[in-house]
Design a protein around this nucleic acid. Structure first.
Length: 286
DNA sequence: AGATCGCCCTGCTTGC
DNA sequence: TGCAAGCAGGGCGATC
């Protein structure tokens, strides 16, 4: 599934293939794909028509396209299975094509939102003075954002009465970290996912943040090599996912550090993967 | 008010 | 072989 690095690859692709083009027509093929646009599909299509797309921006797993000469942006979230594709306009419709945007130029390509599970979608929102769509004002900066405040994150961890993986997935503290990268970063930092955040020391927090950034940058380095093509494509099948995961999805396989079989535990209706030897359970569990 | 949990969705995998 | 259950999981809103 698309996580922050994949979304960043999509953003770069949009910048290259979609920015500065004028919308001729938007077509919503599945209403659920615009459910976050409360005024409905017709309003969404009507508001897009005739406007020029600006430069794509991103925070965490959200990305957005400002509409030039308006105070609105097209906000996109890929959810679990969403893709934004730039396709030749005569390419056959994808099975799960949800939204199509045609452009008023002769490049003969169109933007398509394809999403099997429709957890993702597009919507239009007012842009706040700091350039953010208003509905994601509560989303924290992500760890690849130069303005992410490590110290403030550490203080927030100390304040909370929660455990570290919950905190990593809390989009109001740090954005863009999903289940996969949380498990990977915790494995690299040798921290158990249920460690209470209140006891985190500054070096421990900074170590973890360093590993979060390392694992994301590694994925970006792999996924980022393929965006220079016509396809603005993300489907979670980057080579990184197949080859380089150390914890996620490796239940029963030997830990790459110590050889102990990796364990999977049900956690919040999903799974946590960890090495029981490298990542010791916290002494106090609540 | 902060923390927790259920639900949304569909295709693939697993088990009987 | 066929069907049902399980699983994947981000984010939101209801609930405690």
């Amino acid at each position: 599934m698309p996580e922050l690095p994949e979304v960043e690859v999509v953003r770069r692709g949009l910048e290259r293939w979609v920015a500065h083009r004028t919308v001729a027509e938007a077509e919503v093929l599945h209403p659920r794909a615009v459910r976050r646009h409360l005024a409905g599909a017709d309003d969404f299509a009507h508001r897009l028509k005739g406007h020029r797309i600006g430069t794509a921006d991103r925070r965490g797993k959200y990305l957005w396209l400002p509409l030039e000469d308006t105070d609105q942006s097209v906000l996109a979230h890929l959810g679990m299975s969403g893709q934004l594709l730039v396709q030749p306009h005569d390419a056959p419709d994808e099975k799960h094509l949800r939204i199509r945007v045609r452009f008023a130029d002769d490049l003969r390509t169109e933007l398509r939102f394809v999403d099997q599970r429709t957890f993702g979608g597009l919507s239009l929102h007012d842009t706040t003075p700091d350039g953010l769509p208003d509905v994601i004002a509560h989303i924290a900066r992500d760890p690849l954002d130069p303005l992410f405040d490590d110290e403030a994150f550490h203080r927030a961890l100390r304040r909370k009465r929660t455990t570290i993986k919950r905190a990593l997935l809390d989009q109001s503290l740090i954005s863009g970290v999903g289940n996969i990268y949380a498990d990977e970063a915790l494995w690299r930092a040798r921290i158990h996912y249920e460690s209470p955040t209140a006891g985190f020391t500054r070096p421990r927090t900074l170590l973890l943040l360093g590993h979060v950034r390392d694992v994301m940058n590694a994925a970006l380095a792999v996924g980022g090599t393929s965006f220079d093509s016509l396809y603005v494509n993300v489907n979670g099948e980057s080579g990184y996912f197949d080859r380089s995961l150390d914890a996620y999805g490796r239940e029963g396989l030997p830990c790459r550090r110590c050889g102990t079989p990796v364990r999977r535990r049900p956690w919040m209706n999903r799974s946590s993967y960890f090495c029981p030897k490298c990542q010791r359970a916290p002494r106090v569990s609540s």
